[in-house]
């Protein structure tokens, strides 16, 4: 268990397939300071680098240059599984966040173990079952009575709710949400989003949420960041954000994207 952390990203660069014909600059000098407990929404078009940014913070791949400082500690070169002890993640695919052929209680037991080293003691204990039931009850999906059910028997929405619970149950210092409602049908997506907001608010989690959905980005979170071509193009605080509507945001988006396009053309000439 750890307290919400500050996140400092400095001059972060990620180049895929460097020095080949397929070279892609996915992150082109990202500077981002996130105070503890802030909920940041990140929007941007396909290929803008928003998912790459989350994966870089999570440590899925080594970055090309720059720094990632979590809670005052430089984690830039830390292995993914070490960083994962304090970073909670929810992916777009509801199947990604849970182990399908294991039971609900086995999955949750794993998530309860996150911050510590796994021992040769029993994984699913009655004490842990009590914690699981209490947490599952908040989802209002009746899962608290189905602890021994296989996760592959659950619907996409139920699995994503489980993923969210598993990512937050051990109180991570940072929560990364990668379009975690995009693959769900609208009604279920709304439920999961409300649940997310409730959990984040209650625990005061430092959160980065990547989304395609401008309305979600405006409605949730206390800061909005727009990315384009591997850069942060727009950074709005809660006040500025509240004054905007989806239409304004789309306009801003075209402004930003158009400008960047012009800059690219200038560089080419």
């Amino acid at each position: 268990m750890s307290a919400p952390a500050t996140l400092d990203i400095g001059a972060l660069r990620k180049v895929f397939f460097p020095a080949t014909a397929n070279e892609v600059v996915a992150l082109n000098g990202i500077d981002l300071e996130v105070p503890a407990g802030q909920f940041v929404s990140i929007i941007g078009s396909n290929g803008s680098g928003k998912s790459t940014l989350l994966n870089a913070v999570a440590g899925t791949f080594p970055v090309s240059a720059g720094k990632i400082v979590l809670d005052g500690r430089d984690v830039t070169r830390q292995a993914e599984h070490v960083r994962s002890r304090t970073i909670g993640r929810v992916f777009q695919d509801p199947r990604a966040g849970t182990a399908p052929s294991m039971t609900i209680e086995e999955n949750l037991a794993i998530s309860l173990l996150r911050s510590k080293r796994s021992s040769l003691r029993r994984g699913v204990t009655n004490r842990r079952r009590d914690v699981m039931r209490a947490q599952l009850a908040r989802l209002h999906m009746g899962l608290e009575d189905r602890l021994k059910a296989g996760v592959n028997k659950l619907s996409g929405g139920q699995r994503q709710a489980m993923s969210l619970l598993m990512a937050t149950i051990a109180e991570p210092s940072l929560l990364l949400l990668d379009e975690h409602t995009a693959a769900l049908d609208p009604k279920v997506a709304a439920t999961i989003m409300q649940l997310t907001a409730a959990i984040v608010a209650e625990r005061g989690l430092t959160t980065l949420m990547v989304t395609h959905n401008m309305e979600l980005a405006l409605r949730y979170g206390d800061r909005l960041i727009m990315m384009h071509a591997g850069r942060v193009m727009l950074d709005l605080d809660a006040g500025q954000k509240a004054a905007l509507e989806v239409g304004d945001l789309i306009e801003k988006f075209h402004e930003v994207a158009g400008e960047a396009f012009a800059v690219d053309r200038m560089l080419l000439e």
Binding site: V82, A99, S115
Partner: peptide
């Protein structure tokens, strides 16, 4: 069963 998930849970 799901290596991506268990890595994200801090297991080597």
């Amino acid at each position: 069963d799901n290596e991506q998930m268990i890595r994200a849970m801090g297991t080597n």
